[in-house]
Amino acid sequence: MAENEKKILLEVDHLTKYFNTPKGLLHAVDGVSFQIEQGKTLGIVGESGCGKSTTGRSILKLIEPTSGKIIFDGEDITKYSKTRMRRLRTEMTMIFQDPFSSLDPRQSVMELISEPIREHRLLRGNDAIQKRTLELMDTVGLAQRFVNSYPHELDGGRRQRIGIARALAVNPKLIVCDEPVSALDVSIQAQILNLLKQLQKDHGLTYIFITHDLSVVKYFSDDIAVMYLGQMVEKANSDELFRQPMHPYTQALLSAIPLPIVGKNKPERKLIRGEITSPVNLPDQCRFLKRCDACTKDCETGKNPELREVAPGHFVACHCV
């Protein structure tokens, strides 16, 4: 193993999460598999309800998966109890979307950032904890004069910096970022994205980057997985996926992004009809069928397509490719 530089930090195998609802079984995540190497970023993209957040939360076992396997750093953590997971909470953590609701409004910045350090008993003595908190504020670019401020006194960008500092406080290996910049203005978004990228370089962090914004994910990820109705429909290296999207849904998703270009360089748009169908009691059929323009007879009679490797490292779940 020594000469093998690529170390798989996380492996997810046929992860499923079903929810029982009065109307039937809701397939939130339905057989998702992937691997991430240490120090890399996997972007998970999809629209509301595609199961991207449920996937992220299941990996951290904030939600108990229905079936499948999660192997983190060589340990199969799928069956770990809450108490056994506690130790791992310092190795895998999360940054949330909304810095307005994910921070306790009654805690000061000092309390917020030092909380994970105290909680996991990473340091002893108030002086050491305070010193580390100020260090963390420095790392995430939060001026020390805010140390006694409360979240409501700060703007969205600074609040998100607190969220990042809290995640970093435990020295994690893996951070699941669930739409970390969606609530922020573009100029602030760029600041936070640059920060996350710098931290990855400095600390060798591994990210799962969950977002609906394809332009952000392209900027950020090594690999990208596109999800639709609980399943991965395409997975490839970031540049490859953008250069040659193969799944009709990925193509539609890419073409739907409004580009800030006016004039002759503007590419033609391709709209898809309809909306995402209900994830309850799904038939064994391609899930994109009803919205797909490329679909053939095979798609209508065939089963739900599996992910296949169609080019080296490029996986697609579509009968027509």
Partner: peptide, 23 residues
């Protein structure tokens, strides 16, 4: 110009975005 520079470019994958400094 700052707004344009803050946008991740879909065509090219730049190393770093150029945010507008400050608030």
């Amino acid at each position: 110009e700052g707004l344009f520079n803050s946008l991740p470019n879909l065509r090219e994958r730049g190393e770093e975005l150029i945010p507008i400094k400050g608030l």
